[in-house]
């Protein structure tokens, strides 16, 4: 049986999401079965960048407006400077031939990394399946623990 690695991505910060996806892609290259479990602000990484028409209440809609819409819109955990920080870091990453977050997500999918959206926090934040990118699984804490119990590396980011 293959070794497993799991990451809980709780954060919706660009830098932390990049770190999570680099580790996930590295673990996949180690032949691990890799799961990233997205919960709370981490779910924003999975949002489609275009608005999707949904049937939601005002409070849920407000959450949708206030949160970043997808991997390209995330802020930095430090030195965000009103969105200037992310532009700077993206520039520097390009210079160093580092993959962007959207590229890292594509690579993770290609390598068979399992991307799991936490359904309970989707409800809290008012996020619907049709607002998130394709090829996700939907589950809760039990499914996560099922993977993590056999995990060699389990991280919370």
């Amino acid at each position: 049986m293959a070794d497993k690695s799991t990451i809980v991505l709780f954060s919706g910060d660009l830098d932390k999401a990049i770190a999570a996806f680099i580790i996930a892609n590295g673990a996949a290259a180690y032949d691990h079965e890799v799961t990233i479990f997205f919960t709370f602000w981490g779910l924003n990484v999975l949002r489609k960048d275009k608005a999707v028409k949904t049937n939601k209440g005002l409070l849920e809609k407000a959450f949708g407006w206030m949160m970043p819409r997808g991997a390209k819109k995330l802020g930095l955990s430090k030195l965000n400077v009103g969105g200037l920080g992310p532009q700077m870091i993206k520039h520097v990453m390009k210079k160093h031939n580092a993959l962007s977050l959207p590229q890292l997500i594509e690579l993770a999918k290609e390598q068979g990394v399992k991307l799991v959206a936490c359904t309970m926090t989707m409800d809290l934040l008012g996020l619907k399946q049709e607002e998130l990118i394709d090829d996700l699984e939907y589950a809760g804490v039990a499914a996560y623990l099922g993977d993590a119990s056999n995990g060699k590396v389990n991280l919370f980011i």
């Binding site: 680099i22 892609n25 590295g26 996949a28 290259a29 180690y30 580092a98």
Partner: peptide, 14 residues
């Protein structure tokens, strides 16, 4: 050559 982490390992694995 020129690629950043984690690409060397990913390419090597493939």
């Amino acid at each position: 050559k020129g690629m950043a982490c984690p690409m060397p390992i990913v390419k090597a694995k493939k």
